[in-house]
Amino acid sequence: MSDPTVTVTVKLFAAYQEAYGVPELVLDLPRGSAVSDVRDRLLADHPELEQWRDVTRFGINLQFVEPDAVLQSGDEVVLIPPVSGG
């Protein structure tokens, strides 16, 4: 029987890192979860992050992905609030 969950590492930056006080989390999610479900779980834990919901982009394994990208166990996920490099 296959594992009903997937385990992913979530890298946190900027406002997300400040909300959690740590640079990364390890989360278990139901198999078939999308990367946007990671954001939704974090916003449920930290409602003060709600302002970033619609402007957060997503990365999996160092590549930008769409919000509906499906997670695999072992993925490194990043939530990308508005960037300001340069």
Binding site: F13, A14, G59, F64, V78, I80, P81, V83, S84, G85, G86
Partner: peptide, 9 residues
């Protein structure tokens, strides 16, 4: 770079 690189200040 300014629009896409995952860098924050």
């Amino acid at each position: 770079l300014k629009h896409n690189a995952p860098i924050w200040k």
